[in-house]
Amino acid sequence: MLETIEQTKQQFLLDLSQSDTLDKLEQLRIAYLARSGRIAALFEGLKSASVADKPVLGKSLNELRSFAQSQFEARKSELDGASKPKETSIDLTLPGRPRPIGTKHPVMQSMEEMKRIFVSMGFSIASGPEIESDYYNFGALNFPPDHPARDMQDTFFISKDVLLRTHTSPVQIRVMEKQKPPVRVIMPGRVYRNEAISARSLVMFYQIEGLYVDKGVTFSELKGTLVSFAKQFYGSNSKYRFRPSFFPFTEPSAEMDITCYICSGKGCRVCKYSGWLEIVGSGMVHPNVLKNVGYDPELYTGFAFGFGVERPTILRHGIDDIRLLYENDVRFLRQF
């Protein structure tokens, strides 16, 4: 008898699938679910089954009946809906009503991401003036007067001793003058270089400076901090290297390079065929700088680093002309 129940179910499904009008569906109902229908007939047959089989068969029959009932109802409402005229005839392929979509400037997006990474490493954020004194921009940072190191940064002067800061490093001095160690800050901001405008240089750009001074800060930790940053910002697959460099306010000084992610280190126009991209200038804070802010260099050591924000930004988005960044063409801005 279980077989008959199963056969009835299969036949019901077949008939259901062919009931494509309300009339046909009504016939289906009469054939299966009515008092004299096939399911009722099966219940009739149950009476003659053995006592041992009855519970199993009864359960199967009940299941069949409720299954058939629900299938019938679902189908009925389907056909009902199709037969009635629609209340609203909205074309669902119409576009949604547009709302203006805003964007953050791509350079600011990079800045926010960079700040987020350093803040997660326990750095706080400080800032300082863009119109700076010669002392903070150069003197306190161990640039001797009349030293060729000053040629590394073409400077806009406002008067003999006042200038537009050429780097965010003067904020290091301002922070250390105000605060006793430990100091762990990043200092983002706008800086200026008096250079001819070309595809590769801007008069104004953004830098992020970092400083950590405490007892027992080492070059080893400088590497660790920058590698950790680079892995978070540039991806954990990038390789990096440190090489000696020169900044008057750090010693030893280092440049950190990562494998060019345009060419994966094979060499291309962007990396000047070296396979490497210079991303951060850094070093151990020069003892003369610590002395200039009244820190004892025998007691404290520290590291500092700084990098531009524009280059990582254009590399990240594949922007081929850095000047686009500050043209502020909305066709450009809306892409980010």
Partner: peptide, 22 residues
């Protein structure tokens, strides 16, 4: 060789004066 110097992360992180200033 700079690359032979071990790369260590900052051992003790002190969040006491961490202010998200901007």
């Amino acid at each position: 060789g700079y690359n032979n110097i071990e790369t260590k992360t900052i051992s003790s992180i002190d969040f006491s004066n961490s202010v998200f200033a901007d």
